[in-house]
Simulated scan of single mutants.
Amino acid sequence: MFFENMPTWQKLLWIVFVLGIFWMLEGYYALVKFRYHKWKHARTNFILLGFVMLINLIFGIITGGIFLWLDDSNFGLLQLFDLPIWIELIMAIFVLDLIAQYFVHYLLHKVKWMWRLHLIHHTDTHVDATTGTRHHPFDFIIRESFALIAVIIMGMPVAYYLFYRILSIFFTYFTHANIRLPKGLDKILSYVIVTPNMHKFHHHYQLPWTDSNYGNMLSIWDRIFGTFSYDDTKKIRYGIDIVEDDTSDKIGFQLGIPFNRSIKTKN
């Protein structure tokens, strides 16, 4: 498959392309008319992205080793059946979306030490496409570890995993983008996939919305497990109620949040 041989520069180009498209769309079809310095805000999130990309290089080596082992061992659920490629691919995407996105995201909100790492993603007071890159490096390590667990359980080939990553990048920027879809269209799409409006409730500054809509690509997990929310987006206020709004773009403060005991978490 093409994705199995996709060079790193093409993956990076895909990130830049998708982020750039939604960055531009925000200027014409904004959901919220922010009064902020867009580039200054983006700088904080891009610095965090830089840390994540460095860690990704290390995980790339680990991931490569796991796929070599899977090729030799024939380990995993997909090795037990002789199924058409398209069915295997759909199964792989479903399992990755459930374990590496919904489930780990749920844990990041419910386990105290994980929540402290994940807080950085929620302290953004101007949610836009760049917010999708806003993760503490240790938060990213946890997410990638769960993705590898899903890979091992399924015993999937690297091509399936890379295809999932490409889809995941698109949805990450799509759901965080400050774009306004027609309300009817957004609501209809939310029955199957995570939409911009749907995910924005997750970035509301208070419970219970903060602890809802954990999905990344498929909205079915939130519907199945009772964590789905949908309301009027005008009620949303971004940020998190346990961290001061004016610290949102202070990179040093943000990186120190997990270790800042003056910040009292809900857990």
Rank of each mutant, 00 (worst) to 15 (best):
F3R: 09
E4K: 13
N5H: 11
T8C: 03
W9F: 15
K11P: 00
L12K: 05
L13C: 14
I15P: 05
V18G: 09
V18M: 14
V18C: 12
V18P: 02
L19W: 10
F22S: 01
W23L: 08
M24S: 10
E26P: 00
G27E: 00
G27A: 00
Y28M: 13
Y29L: 14
A30M: 05
K38F: 02
A42T: 04
F46C: 07
F46Y: 11
L48C: 03
L48N: 05
M53R: 12
M53P: 06
I55M: 13
L57M: 14
I58D: 01
G64E: 09
G64A: 06
G65F: 05
I66G: 03
L68Y: 13
S73M: 14
G76F: 05
L78S: 04
Q79V: 07
D82A: 10
L83M: 07
P84A: 08
I85A: 14
I85L: 12
W86M: 11
I87D: 00
E88Q: 11
L89A: 07
M91Y: 10
M91L: 15
A92M: 09
Q101W: 03
Q101C: 03
H105M: 02
Y106C: 08
V111L: 12
K112C: 08
R116L: 08
L119F: 07
L119T: 02
D124S: 01
H126I: 04
R134A: 02
H135Y: 15
D139M: 04
I141D: 05
R143M: 14
L148N: 09
L148M: 12
V151H: 02
I152F: 07
V158Y: 10
Y160S: 04
Y161F: 15
Y161L: 12
Y164F: 15
Y164D: 06
I166V: 14
I169F: 07
F170K: 00
A177N: 09
N178C: 06
I179M: 01
K183Q: 12
K183E: 12
V192I: 14
I193Y: 05
T195G: 06
P208I: 01
W209N: 09
W209Q: 13
D211T: 09
D211E: 13
S212F: 05
G215E: 02
G215M: 05
M217P: 06
M217E: 06
R223C: 07
F225R: 05
F228Y: 11
S229F: 15
Y230S: 03
Y230M: 05
D231Y: 04
K234F: 04
G239R: 01
D246Q: 10
T247D: 07
Q254C: 13
G256R: 11
P258N: 04
S262P: 04
I263H: 10
I263E: 08
